[in-house]
Design a protein around this nucleic acid. Structure first.
Lengths: 333, 333
DNA sequence: AATGCGACTGAAAACGTATACCCTGATTTT
DNA sequence: AAAATCAGGGTATACGTTTTCAGTCGCATT
């Protein structure tokens, strides 16, 4: 591949001049500029981003760490980031952490080796101190979907306690008194926070949510199916099912329908996230809107801003609150 | 961030020695190696991938060009690539081309500037010659979801003609004689090839698929809804609906159900792709399995292999054939 | 005619790493 | 005991850019 030196030689100018042409530098004559430009076209010249990053100490690139790409939630997250990087001509480096400590750590470190300027990280397995250390080391380090007080201005997160409260309150307002919950068995904050919110709502209403009405499984469709089967097997009675996310809700719904249980006539279901499938499944899923695309875009903007030298304002935080989306999977009792 | 020079200084050795330690090079004593390693840990040293890429002329990175991340199909594609890059410690650089000529071109060029070793490209808008030129310039350039004879050994693609034929044949075998089609309005090969396959099947069976039974729209849920509404508005009669993909199928199904048309009792539906939602929607969608994750993994392996110097074998090609997945959206007449 | 100035261009150093080549001292071979 | 080998380690160059610092030239100003 042609280098700046080849261009310089062919155009009969120095390296410096070619470099100035490339970067629209100031001090180069009009005809020289044109000549160099045509030669660049002819030779199909492409600046070497690595060399450039090395000398300028900046890379116009942003690293993204997510769990798994084929999860629609993370795909949407990545898409949100992409909308802003595209506008700013920033390249995305993507790494999957697959909810495993070692892998997440490795993902971040690899990104670090590539000297990305900014970083949007979704980490559930790394502990606060590790993340705080990264944040202190990398100006453009932003966490999404997690809140750590010590680096509040680097966190873009969702209020899961309120989210849990909202879904339970809605069910209760619709007349439901017997709730069940299928949740994620991952040892991370989200399920616990949502449960906290749910318990807040139930106790406010004078209800209880006994542990026997809670099933844990992987937060995907299969987990939803499994959890639902377990719940059915115990023979417990409930009229409203709260799910950790839409995928679990859909899985549970499928199992119920296979068992001849009408949704929502016999059992109402509420999901969480509002991913695409919430609109596709039948009945359409009543769920909590998780504005992840917007949040991801915000995180990317923030990361890029911090990376470019803007000091993060102290005390600032980026909390989002979910809202309920009413569709057809909840019946009024 | 600490450099190799800092390490060398702190350890009282030369740059070369440190470099040898990093790369598990041969000529360094056991105790020196240990000393250097501990110092690297202490200083939190991370090799600079840019500098390394510059001097070695290789980058251990793979570029991916897709249309839009939030499309589940592309998310799955990216995930397929990711499974193999992770195994081989290769970093993914991701760019979205959004089915626009300029953007796709720019995506590839940016990746080129980053000197990615390999590239898995999904391009529908770039012409053959442009892609052939890239393929000739970049050893690790592989196309996915497209077939260009001149660079057959760089193409991992699906036989869409057979796919179209299979879906139509299945409908016909189930006793359907009146077919309708909702397809993508993008001016790319796929819809045309699938239509060709469908027409093959209908004429073999002595049937016809008049243009009045075909509606075009964007290949997503909304497009499916729109196309279905148009089809209903014309008042044409059909008992089986073939869709360009699962999203359109789901959109169409939703519209039918909203109009009180029973699926599959009154109208059968066949999708294409077999993405997640095919299992979620009710009735579960009978569809064509597009093994995109497997294909993407294959493409990534291929790209990495070619990039590492293995010459592509002439005449080799990587054609995949879709298979029908029978679920609940087709009734026997 | 000397001076200054502005516009343009070039030479060279730097970024962080890998590696070919050279050097030293010790061990083995004859 | 001299020569040959070898393990261990250092020196210096190159990779492709950007950028600082010096020029050089022509022209207008005194």
């Amino acid at each position: 591949m042609a280098t700046i030196k080849d261009i310089a030689q062919a155009a009969g100018v120095s390296l410096a001049t070619v470099s100035r042409v490339i970067n629209d530098g100031p001090k180069v004559g009009a005809k020289t500029r044109e000549r160099v430009k045509t030669i660049m076209k002819e030779l199909g010249y492409r600046p070497n981003a690595n060399a450039r990053a090395l000398v300028t100490q900046r890379s116009a690139s942003l690293g993204v760490v997510i769990a798994e790409l084929h999860d629609p939630f993370f795909a949407t997250l990545a898409h949100g980031v992409e909308t802003v990087t595209r506008k700013q001509n920033v390249q995305i480096l993507l790494s999957a952490g697959s909810i495993a400590r070692e892998t997440e750590l490795k993902a971040i470190e690899t990104l670090l080796e590539h000297r990305v300027e900014a970083m949007v990280v979704h980490s559930k397995t790394l502990d606060d101190d590790t993340l705080i250390a990264f944040a202190n080391q990398i100006p453009g380090f932003v966490l999404i979907n997690r809140y750590i007080p010590a680096i509040a201005n680097r966190c873009v997160w969702l209020d899961n306690v309120t989210g849990g409260r909202l879904m339970a309150e809605y069910a209760i307002r619709q007349g439901h008194e017997h709730l069940a919950l299928i949740s994620s068995h991952y040892q991370i904050d989200d399920p616990a926070q949502r449960l906290e919110g749910i318990r807040l709502a139930t106790s406010n209403a004078g209800l209880t949510l006994p542990d026997s009405m809670i099933e844990y499984a992987t937060p995907d469709q299969e987990g939803g199916e499994l959890a639902m089967q377990n719940l059915l097997a115990t023979g417990t009675h409930f009229t409203a099912l709260l799910a950790y996310n839409d995928a679990m809700a859909a899985g549970a719904m499928a199992v119920m329908q296979d068992h001849g249980i009408d949704v929502p006539e016999q059992v109402s279901i509420i999901g969480y996230d509002d991913v695409l499938l919430a609109k596709y499944c039948r009945p359409k899923l009543t769920t909590l809107r998780y504005p992840i695309e917007m949040m991801a875009a915000k995180a990317a903007e923030l990361a890029l801003k911090y990376a470019s030298g803007t000091a993060p304002e102290e005390g600032l935080t980026f909390k989002y609150t979910p809202t309920i989306v009413k569709r057809d999977s909840v019946a009024r009792l």
